[in-house]
Simulated assay, not measured.
Amino acid sequence: MSLYGKYALGILFTFVLLIAVMLYAFPLVYFITGVKEFKSANLFYTRIALWTVLALVFLYNFLMEKDAFLLWKEKKYPALFYIRAVIFLYLICAFGGAFLNLLIQIFAQENISRKLLQLALLFRNNYWLIISFCLTAGVVEELLMRGYIQPRIEKIYNSSYSGVFISAALFGILHSTYGTIGQVVVPFFIGTVFALFYKKYLNIKILIISHCIYDFVSMMIMNFTDIKHLSAF
């Protein structure tokens, strides 16, 4: 198998594993633990499943591709650049996501995601769970979606745009398990912003930090928001 064939298989392998975790992690945890409730311990176990996916992709890369996990060499920047970049990415994603959500509410008038509502209740004042959730999403999703998948798609199709938009589309699809249009459109938008940034500045660490902060701020707002007002949020 050619190296590009291995890249394609690795992308498929990664996406299938992530979809499997999103769809079946909770049923599997319920089966193993015997606790068929949406509890913090069960949610924590699903985060372990995501870290396991990252480990398996690293193993595939090491054994099959025998290439660098991050195909694009990391660029170093001064500390001030990190601060400015994180603030910029947060503001773009926060305001852009809020605008998209507003449009969806106006034209689609969809209800709040049932899964998001369950998470909001589970995260209520559970700060360790919030931190573990944000760290897992930031590290695992950025290393896999931007660090691993994006440059390999670009290599296969020899197109920067394909790497940006296909990786963003896959990122949006992964969030479709939340069951709403907004939970696909907004992640697609954020995935596009992050992918464009990664293509231009070649620094995955900034994306990891930005992703963690974006999720953390969002969850803290949810934590201090009355449940009945979450649809507006």
Rank of each mutant, 00 (worst) to 15 (best):
F107P: 06
N101I: 10
E141I: 09
F58T: 01
Y82G: 02
L63F: 08
W128C: 01
I130S: 10
K75H: 13
Q109A: 14
L117S: 15
V35G: 00
K39N: 13
G96E: 10
I106V: 14
K39H: 05
F38D: 02
V86G: 01
R114K: 14
I130C: 09
P78T: 07
Y90A: 03
F38Q: 02
I112F: 15
L70I: 05
F133R: 00
A49S: 13
L122Y: 11
G34E: 02
E110H: 10
I87Q: 00
L70F: 15
I87F: 07
I92L: 13
L56Y: 08
N101T: 14
I106E: 09
T33M: 05
Q109L: 04
Y45F: 12
I106A: 07
L121W: 12
I104L: 15
P78M: 07
A98E: 05
L91S: 04
L56M: 13
E141C: 08
G97F: 07
A120D: 06
L100A: 00
L100K: 03
E141A: 08
Q118N: 08
L50M: 15
Q105A: 10
C134N: 14
A49C: 13
W51R: 07
F99G: 00
P78R: 05
I130Y: 09
K75E: 14
N42C: 04
Y45Q: 03
L100H: 01
L50Q: 13
L54C: 01
S132T: 13
L122E: 12
L54E: 03
L59I: 12
A120I: 05
L80D: 06
L121V: 11
R47D: 00
L129R: 05
S40N: 10
Y60G: 02
L100V: 00
F107K: 11
I92D: 02
N101C: 06
Y60Q: 03
T52L: 12
W72N: 10
F58P: 01
A79C: 02
